[in-house]
Simulated assay, not measured.
Amino acid sequence: MKEEEIIEKLQKLGLTKYESLAYITLLKLGPSKATDITKESGIPHTRVYDVLSSLHRKGFVDVMQGSPRLYKPVNPEVVLERIKEDFIEDVENLKVAFLELYREVHGEDLPEIWTIQGFENTVERAEYVIRTAKHEVLINTPFEFLQLLKSEIRARKDIVFVIISNFDEIPDWLKGNNIILARSGGAPWLMASWIIGDIDYALFFGALPKDKRREKFYSFWAKSPKIIQNYMHWFYTIYLDNSEIIKPLNYAAAPKPLSLVNIRTLITVLKYLEPPRKIEVIGRLVDTKEPVTLDGEITEYEYTPLTANITVNAGGKEWKIGGIGSYFEDVEGEKFILLD
């Protein structure tokens, strides 16, 4: 990266042009006198002390007392990590403030579904879903689009992927221990693409665009557990259940404990394991909505287009546990943690 580009990016982080020049100069020279910094950077001698004092206040420079006084650059990794943490905190605080402003006028949450215009924006949202997921990502999309997500998928070895596509062969980057692959089958494949992250985010779109119409492409972005739990149900009953599993999860080599939020993902994993399996379930009692945590063993499971649940023996009692939105079972499971 050219020095001019570095200065431009540092200015975006809140430094002035002279402050950016001084910090870059110190990285080149190491601990230096103010006169040396002036000579190397071209910062006027009348300004250099103010610039260095400002950099010290902002955490970019340490002052080494003595005669002469020396100025030392703070490790860039330390500086940038602190800036990143502060930036993330500011963004989260702004999100809260913006929602409060919105509710003052409208008295409700922001809309749960947005329209995304432009193919590149859709790709960015799909990457964001993968990057921010904590437990699992469900993907149903043509291989042409799946390839665009290659780097994000390869980077996430700490979550479970369930991916349905029109595979001919399985590329190396999809052979990870944490990935379940299915080859799409029949008419359901033609209906739509889905990228779903946990119960937090979902992206939906139809046919991929031709190049000349990429800017007119539309997709739909949802951030609503109520909507996403339906998307997850459709993902399994419409798509996965009509597809062929060509690569199950390598459970033995997958990182433990394995944490999931979708009951059907859990059962898809269990189909290739010998029961019983130790599990911790975090959820709510269906009758009272009281929070509950169960530690026990899975003894059996049930999986149909309408029903998905597991039976867990915990505390000397058998519990019937479903997923989010359960009303037939004893417990509405919100997180499922396989322990062995």
Rank of each mutant, 00 (worst) to 15 (best):
L240S: 00
V292G: 02
T46S: 15
D36P: 01
W234N: 13
W194N: 11
V61E: 03
V160N: 02
T122E: 01
A34C: 04
L15G: 01
E8W: 07
V281Q: 00
E290T: 14
L203F: 15
K72C: 10
Y231F: 15
T299Q: 05
F167E: 00
M1Q: 05
W194F: 15
F98E: 12
K289T: 05
H45Y: 13
G186A: 12
T311V: 13
T38Q: 08
D211E: 12
L249H: 06
E152H: 14
P209E: 07
T265I: 06
D158L: 03
V61P: 01
V51E: 06
E5C: 09
V61K: 03
K28Q: 10
E81A: 15
S41K: 02
I159N: 02
L338V: 07
L338C: 12
R264G: 02
E89V: 11
I324A: 15
I227F: 14
V331D: 00
A34L: 05
F145T: 04
L29G: 05
K58H: 04
F336G: 00
D62S: 14
P276T: 13
W221R: 06
R264C: 01
I163Y: 03
N178E: 04
E334F: 15
D198V: 05
L249S: 02
D50P: 03
G59Q: 05
P73G: 13
E104F: 13
S41P: 00
K72S: 12
E300G: 11
I24M: 12
F235S: 03
L80N: 07
V74G: 05
F145A: 13
G315M: 04
L55D: 01
I195A: 11
P31L: 06
T132S: 14
Y327C: 05
L101K: 12
Q117Y: 10
F204Y: 15
K256Y: 01
L174Y: 01
Y218F: 11
D158K: 02
F143M: 11
H233G: 06
L273M: 02
S151Y: 08
I337E: 03
W173A: 05
G283N: 02
G176R: 04
L181D: 10
G197W: 08
A133H: 04
L99P: 00
F161G: 12
E302W: 11
Q117R: 13
G59K: 09
I199Q: 12
P142I: 08
H233C: 00
L181G: 12
T141W: 00
T141G: 04
I163S: 06
T288M: 02
S184P: 00
G333C: 08
L138S: 03
K317R: 15
T25E: 00
L260E: 02
S193L: 04
S54R: 11
E81Q: 14
G315Q: 09
L260D: 01
T268M: 10
K134Y: 06
